[in-house]
């Protein structure tokens, strides 16, 4: 990546609205993510943060507004343009989403074999390097089902890194992991930050890891961005919902919220 583009937006959203059926999940978001930045999108479950991530990768269609990724309007782009764009993106899913029919090594080799003209022997070496990077050397021939949750996530990282992407997306990288494993994942992200000049977008609800890795934190609540700034600034925020989130205060009307979530899940099913 040239130095000239550092500091210019790589992803920008203007009045971005996303709907599942009749229900609007994201209510007109406006933000920019700059080249080389590590942005954490923080929010509770059902806040719309995962939907935002899926929309940025083009897995979800926006209802109105504009979302540009590397200058491409995701709402209007053809499947072919989106596919070309995705070659420069890496996405690591919450549950790993490794293909169960392939081994761990084959999973990581897959994008390389399909999209690059590299010889299989070269790909094999690259797979070994990527696995080593995430601390999974020697697990090439394991089936994904034989890995623990944390290992699956790390293998998914390796697959996301396979094509040396310009933008890396992480969906809940440390959710459901024990503290040691979660710290390991945070370290991995910090190492990636040092080793590559990639733009990283991390969706999480883990406060500790968010403050550790982020250059900038966007707090999403009920489909709106309620705070956006560097971690230090966010700590001093006096926005009531941000404070509630940071101070881990339960909702007073938790009953309502629960119904809200249930409704979201049942209506969000495609």
């Amino acid at each position: 990546m040239d130095a000239a583009v550092v500091g210019t937006p790589i992803i920008s959203a203007r009045d971005l609205r996303v709907r599942y059926g009749e229900r609007e999940i994201l209510h007109g978001l406006r933000f920019d993510i700059l080249h080389g930045e590590t942005v954490v999108i923080l929010g509770g479950s059902g806040s719309g943060k995962s939907t935002l991530l899926r929309t940025m990768v083009g897995l979800e269609k926006s209802h109105s507004g504009e979302l540009r990724v590397k200058g491409v309007d995701m709402g209007k782009a053809s499947e072919r343009t989106k596919a070309e764009l995705r070659l420069k993106m890496g996405l690591s899913f919450q549950g790993g989403a490794l293909l169960g029919s392939l081994s761990v090594g084959e999973n990581i080799a897959l994008p390389l074999l399909e999209h690059s003209g590299l010889a299989p022997s070269t790909v094999e070496v690259m797979v070994r390097i990527k696995l080593e990077q995430v601390g999974l050397s020697g697990f090439e021939d394991f089936s994904p089902s034989a890995l623990s949750g944390g290992m699956k996530k790390r293998a998914a990282f390796a697959r996301a890194l396979a094509m040396d992407p310009e933008i890396l997306f992480f969906d809940e990288p440390s959710a459901g992991l024990d503290p040691i494993m979660a710290a390991g994942i945070d370290n991995l992200i910090l190492n990636l930050k040092k080793a590559y000049t990639v733009t990283m977008v991390i969706v999480t609800h883990e406060l500790a890891s968010a403050f550790l890795v982020a250059d900038r934190i966007m707090v999403v609540d009920k489909g709106d961005i309620i705070a956006d700034g560097p971690p230090d600034l966010l700590r001093q925020s006096d926005h009531p919902r941000v404070r509630q989130f940071l101070d881990r205060v339960p909702d007073s009307e938790s009953g309502d919220d629960e119904v809200d979530h249930l409704r979201m899940y049942t209506e969000g099913v495609r």
């Binding site: 990768v57 897995l59 995705r86 070659l87 549950g95 989403a97 293909l99 169960g100 897959l110």
Partner: peptide, 15 residues
């Protein structure tokens, strides 16, 4: 594959 997001993963890998 739909339930485990593997279909989405394929799309995200431009496959």
């Amino acid at each position: 594959m739909r339930v485990t997001e593997e279909l989405d993963a394929l799309e995200a890998m431009a496959l």
